[in-house]
Computed example of a mutant assay.
Amino acid sequence: MSSRVSDVMTAAPQSLPLDATLYEAARIMRDEGIGDVLVTYAGRLCGLVTDRDIVIRAVAESRDTSLTPLGDVCTAELTTVHPEDDTDTVARLMSEHAVRRLPVVDAEHHPVGIVCIGDLALANGDSGPLPEISKAPPNN
């Protein structure tokens, strides 16, 4: 039986405005032990930046992280879900779009959460290593 997204998501995800720098996003990721930050414009979701985006799209391209805005490297074409959606829908969308996390938005497209593949594993009580890995503290 599937759960609702609101039951498994991380509420109040970290977000920064589109013109914030990669340096700011990297510091939040480090300080919070997370791998992604939602990107907003006027409070509405407009992108997602991951630690991998910073490395591949910025550092490897010799961009100055203290000057480069998130808008230059974030993923803007996002698949999103709503809090009332079910986790089966999340799993299907993750599979179809080959992503590990989906932002959760309200009716006005304001970010209210994020759900990742580990959240689904914990919610479904899957056997195997994924639930245990998902419970482990971040490797700092």
Rank of each mutant, 00 (worst) to 15 (best):
H82E: 11
V73Q: 01
K135A: 11
A98K: 15
G33S: 08
P129G: 13
A25V: 10
V115F: 00
R92Y: 12
R30V: 13
I56D: 07
G71T: 12
C46F: 05
L48Q: 06
T79H: 11
E132S: 09
R63M: 13
A60Y: 10
L122E: 14
G43Y: 05
T68Y: 02
N139M: 13
P17C: 00
S15P: 10
D51L: 06
M94Y: 06
L93E: 13
G128F: 12
R63C: 03
S15C: 05
T75W: 01
C74Q: 05
R4T: 00
S95P: 01
V99F: 00
D7Y: 10
D72N: 11
D106M: 08
P17K: 02
D53P: 15
S134G: 11
L22S: 12
G128K: 00
D85E: 14
S62V: 08
G113P: 00
Y23H: 15
D36A: 15
D19S: 13
E32G: 03
D19L: 15
E132K: 07
V115W: 00
R100N: 09
R44C: 09
P137T: 10
P111M: 03
V90L: 01
L22E: 12
P129M: 01
P138W: 05
D53T: 03
D86A: 03
P83I: 03
E77H: 10
D126P: 00
P111G: 10
V8S: 10
A136G: 11
E132M: 08
D64S: 12
V37M: 07
V73C: 11
V59D: 02
E132G: 04
R27A: 13
G47D: 07
N139P: 01
N124V: 05
V8L: 15
M9Q: 05
L16Q: 09
G43Q: 02
I28E: 11
I56T: 09
A107W: 05
V115T: 15
L45F: 02
T79G: 05
R63T: 02
A98C: 10
T80H: 06
P111V: 04
A58Q: 07
V104Q: 01
M9S: 00
